[in-house]
Write a protein that binds this DNA or RNA. Sequence first.
RNA 1: GGGGGUGUAGCUCAGUUGGUUAGAGCGCCUGCCUGUCACGCAGGAGGUCGCCGGUUCGAGCCCGGUCACUCCCGCCA
Length: 594
Amino acid sequence: MHKYRTHNCNDLSLVNKNEKVILSGWINKKRDHGNLLFIDLRDNYGLTQCVVDNNNKSFRELEKLQLETVVKIEGSVVERIKDTINSDLKTGQIEVKILSFEILGSCKELPMPVFSDQEYGEDVRLKYRFLDLRRKKIHENIILRSQVISFIRSEMSKLGFLEFQTPILTSSSPEGARDFLVPSRLNPGKFYALPQAPQQFKQLIMVAGFDKYFQIAPCFRDEDARADRSPGEFYQLDLEMSFVEQEDIFKVVENLMISMFKKFSNKKLNSEKFPRISYSESMIKYGTDKPDLRNPLVMYDLTKIFTREDVQFEIFKKLVKSGSKVRAIVTKNTKDKPRSFFDGIDKWAKQEGASGLAYFTFEKNNNISAKGPVGKLFSEESLKEIMKITSTQIGDSIFFACGKTNDVEKISALARDKIAQELNLINNDEFAFCWIVDYPMFEKDELTKKIKFSHNPFSMPQGDLKNIDFNKPLDIKAYQYDIVCNGVELSSGAIRNHIPELMYKLFSIAGYDKKNVDEKFNGMINALSYGAPPHGGIAPGIDRIVMLLANEKNIREVTMFPMNQNAQDLLMKAPSEITSEQLKELNIKIVEKK
RNA sequence: GGGGGUGUAGCUCAGUUGGUUAGAGCGCCUGCCUGUCACGCAGGAGGUCGCCGGUUCGAGCCCGGUCACUCCCGCCA
């Protein structure tokens, strides 16, 4: 017989009736009747009720066991009488009558109960992550994550992708997020950087002729955390393909996503073919490049309305004159919503830092009129024009935001979510995917007024390469794309620029001269000069995919050992101070903060 | 770096207008209980009300500061 167990805690059923068995696991729960004791024994696989009464000489000892003690139990499988069957348990038809037991791992008083549906503070959870991870929901999330990754590996392999590892210690790059740096002992004063993504390596893999690559790649970015963004590190399904166009990549990823989301979730997919929305269209209709398409509300640009003589909304008119834009969100048939609904939205917008949202509802008695605090500032003609632009009907309402393009997009995008929530318009049992395509190659930095890469400097510009007008860089679109699901940005990718001359040209627009590029992207640019295939790829975020599949709002719920918001690991106590010897070896001096 | 929220027993939380000895559930300890599966019943221990300072006859509650956690903005090619 096996030393620790003959079965796991999810195995036993009536088939095993009268068998002598050994189980090992954690004491999930005790129910002590004084002379009769039930113990729910738990392991990774499930739960088995064990029972013992005072005829057993170990009874008093068993009674005293702390929850979460690890025990080995020897006993016999007994059929439960009809009234005591627990149909919620897979092993609920039987119980194990305890003959003897042994403590394998004792347990101190718990800082947080394992058997409980209570929510705990995250600091406690992270400090005692090993206990937290025993709890059902998160335990299952982590198993789901493992299954998702296995699934990805097998699907990618089936498609002929090869999995490669790329370096963790690499060089710092000037573009993108802040790097995590690692000092070099052998090269005093020099630093490695942890990769923000294996971007250059995967392109080199294509240049090296491997045709199709993927990796479950760790990525490191020293940026502040969000609910859907771990500080420090996260994982991407990094992939790259040679001799492909945008559509080839879409096909691979779309198929993978659909089969994965069907396999691991019961929620409906909005469409078997993901809608493609251009960046500019997305910004106008949704105010963001990661729209939640479950939300039926769309936005309209009504800037022009506020240049009309017969509109007397002077605050907005004045702002529009100085270059501000007006965006509107229409809600269908909300004429009977109480004033508090509208004012609530307005108040919320002010909390979000906007100057507030103006609103009114379209009414018709003899004439069309607008009901609401600013309604009377609009002539009937202007109202008709608004209704035409926004396809609005009598009884619908409209919310306005006004501000500089960036600001108005931001607040109206938030308002779109907020209003949809308030009106309960979002179907939580659905996954709504889309592709956002046609990103601009460059954008203007609002502060410095300089042209910079808007996304990825290695992307291929769109159009006939001979005819691109480099004098209008802001008009150049790139073969650059994102996948968005339910308002969560899952990944971004691009067809890469594999032509060195073109690369130099584009970098020069962003302010890097040839020497700069050669210095900073030496490996890359050099490789492209020795016969590079056209290639492209994408990198869906694994953590966010699992987060959606597990129906979680926080990425730490699908991460085994996450850091807290201050990028600290409370369990391992990272980051930590190091010895002066270590510092000396690395030629590093700590500067005391004033 | 900035803004919001939270901080009271091991855990989750309540605590009125500032008023005597700060409460509940779970957990823990003691006792009773042979069919529970959130077992039940009786009793008990357990508190620097995050920390510092102020106002006040009196502060868990009001004010100022600070720290921690969290959400958001900035940042995230």
